[in-house]
Deep mutational scan, measured.
Amino acid sequence: MLEGKVKWFNSEKGFGFIEVEGQDDVFVHFSAIQGEGFKTLEEGQAVSFEIVEGNRGPQAANVTKEA
């Protein structure tokens, strides 16, 4: 699992990017966010995740919000 911070997330469109120190930003789709209820992320929020190869390159999977 990697750790990063949410760079930005558009809850209307359901996607955004996660910043990872020393690496390129990683695309995140709302469907990759773990948990119940409305799936969104806040700018600057700490998250842990895995990287998988998507249709358009690397993207986040199994995203969990850090306490």
Rank of each mutant, 00 (worst) to 15 (best):
M1F: 08
M1H: 09
L2I: 11
L2T: 11
L2C: 05
E3W: 09
E3N: 10
G4N: 01
G4L: 01
G4D: 00
K5L: 05
K5W: 05
V6D: 00
V6T: 06
K7G: 06
K7V: 08
W8Y: 09
W8G: 02
F9A: 02
F9S: 02
F9M: 03
F9C: 02
F9R: 01
N10T: 08
N10Y: 05
N10Q: 12
N10S: 15
S11N: 14
E12I: 14
K13Q: 11
G14A: 03
G14Q: 03
F15E: 02
F15V: 08
F15M: 15
F17I: 06
F17N: 02
I18K: 00
I18S: 00
E19M: 15
E19F: 15
E19I: 14
E19S: 08
V20L: 08
E21P: 08
E21V: 15
E21Q: 10
E21T: 13
G22L: 11
G22R: 09
Q23Y: 14
Q23C: 06
D24N: 14
D24M: 14
D25R: 08
D25A: 10
D25H: 05
V26M: 06
H29E: 03
H29R: 03
H29N: 03
F30L: 06
F30D: 02
F30V: 06
S31R: 12
A32V: 10
A32P: 01
A32I: 02
I33V: 07
I33D: 01
Q34N: 14
Q34V: 11
Q34I: 10
Q34H: 12
G35R: 04
G35I: 11
G35K: 09
E36Q: 10
E36M: 12
G37D: 12
G37V: 06
G37N: 09
K39T: 06
K39L: 13
K39W: 06
K39F: 05
K39D: 05
T40C: 05
T40N: 12
L41W: 02
E42G: 13
E42N: 15
E43A: 14
E43W: 15
G44D: 06
G44K: 10
G44S: 07
Q45D: 12
A46E: 06
A46Q: 14
A46W: 04
A46T: 14
V47Q: 00
V47K: 00
S48R: 09
S48N: 15
F49V: 03
F49Y: 05
F49W: 02
F49P: 00
F49T: 02
F49M: 05
F49A: 02
F49E: 00
E50C: 05
E50D: 11
E50W: 15
I51K: 08
I51V: 13
I51W: 09
V52P: 02
E53Q: 15
E53C: 05
G54D: 13
G54F: 06
G54Y: 06
N55G: 15
N55I: 10
R56V: 09
R56H: 13
G57T: 04
G57P: 04
P58L: 09
P58T: 13
P58Q: 15
Q59F: 13
Q59T: 07
A60F: 01
A60W: 00
A61Y: 13
N62T: 14
N62R: 08
N62Y: 05
N62K: 14
V63G: 01
V63R: 00
V63H: 00
T64E: 10
T64W: 11
T64C: 05
K65V: 13
K65D: 06
E66R: 15
E66N: 12
A67L: 09
A67I: 15
A67M: 06
A67P: 12
